[in-house]
């Protein structure tokens, strides 16, 4: 296991370097001058020069890249042009809100997907299975930026049960988490159904039943445990959708997380902040995938030997 971990960590270094380089390239090499975008084409040359200097764009590209990488190694993501504060600090302040939303969405997705997926597998081919399949297709097809407003109309405006937006009380978390977790729950449910269907005819489950275990114990303890492996794969594959979905969900619900900060930074043309946020979200994604791989290797020794 230690060897596997070490190999995975070593392989991560070129990926992280590549990610940092691509983020730098997006904001520095692509045709189009950030100064033009920030000031507009009518700005005076003197104004442009001041901003160019403030952004460090007056230096040769190679020097900018070297300083950028050196800064990253020190944990320095630069300074926000708009808020005049270190980018790393601004992101750090928003992490807890984003983590809260993403974890709550994940919990909701699992809480919906596991029971429904198992139920659909046990009643495969019946009306219950068809209904669960239809719900899954519907859930996976509704984009978060439409589901969010629909939930607001129903739960906040019509029923008045939940806050429309913001993060003022624990109740504020429910709608954004439900919005973000719905698509994931649909995909997880289909995968749970498929995995449980694969496992149900296995001999060891017949043995467990023959020992006199209740059907509930057989399903939840024996079947689901082995159905977890493909679920981890799906979770790691869906982490990307969850993180990018969070950017939009945070915008819909004015949730003060890193995603909303990214969109606010783009609107304010605050490129150091945009760069920092994009890099941070990509790093979280890479770390999440690494954790999923480790969990997979831990649960299934065959992966380590591959």
């Amino acid at each position: 296991m230690r060897r596997y971990l070490l190999r995975r960590l070593v392989l991560l270094v070129p990926v992280l370097w590549g990610v940092a380089t691509l983020v730098f390239a997006v904001t520095n090499i692509i045709p189009g001058d950030p100064v033009d975008l920030m000031l507009g084409e009518t700005a005076r040359p003197a104004q442009r020069e001041v901003l160019r200097k403030a952004l460090g764009l007056d230096r040769p590209l190679g020097v900018q890249y070297r300083d950028y990488l050196a800064g990253l190694l020190r944990g320095d993501l630069g300074t926000s042009l708009h808020k005049k504060r270190p980018v790393a600090q601004l992101i750090a302040e928003r992490i807890s809100a984003s983590a809260e939303l993403t974890l709550a969405a994940l919990a909701i997705a699992i809480a919906i997907a596991l029971p429904l997926g198992i139920l659909a597998a046990r009643r495969a081919g019946t009306g219950v299975d068809l209904a669960a399949g239809a719900i899954a297709v519907l859930g996976a097809s509704i984009p978060v930026f439409w589901l969010g407003p629909l939930l607001i109309i129903f739960f906040s405006i019509d029923l008045g049960w939940l806050p429309v937006s913001g993060r003022s009380s624990p109740l504020s978390l429910i709608l954004p988490a439900l919005t973000l977790g719905t698509a994931l729950s649909a995909i997880l449910m289909r995968m749970t159904r498929s995995s449980v269907l694969d496992i149900l005819p296995q001999d060891y489950l017949a043995t467990a039943r023959a020992k006199g275990l209740s059907e509930r114990r057989v399903l939840w303890l024996h079947a689901l445990r082995n159905a977890c492996l493909p679920l981890i794969t799906i979770l790691s594959l869906q982490l990307g959708a969850l993180l990018s979905g969070a950017i939009i969900t945070e915008t819909v619900f004015a949730w003060p997380g890193v995603g909303r900060l990214t969109i606010q930074a783009i609107a304010a043309r605050d490129y150091p902040l945009v760069q920092g946020c994009v890099l941070f979200i990509a790093l979280i994604y890479v770390a999440g995938n690494l954790l999923a791989d480790i969990a997979y290797a831990w649960l299934d020794p065959r992966v380590r030997l591959d």
Partner: peptide, 24 residues
């Protein structure tokens, strides 16, 4: 494959968001 690894490190539409922040 290492190049694809780098592109795969950007979740969902994050790279598109980053690109559209500098493109018209």
């Amino acid at each position: 494959m290492r190049v694809t690894d780098v592109f795969m490190a950007f979740p969902g539409i994050l790279l598109a968001i980053a690109l559209m922040s500098v493109l018209e």
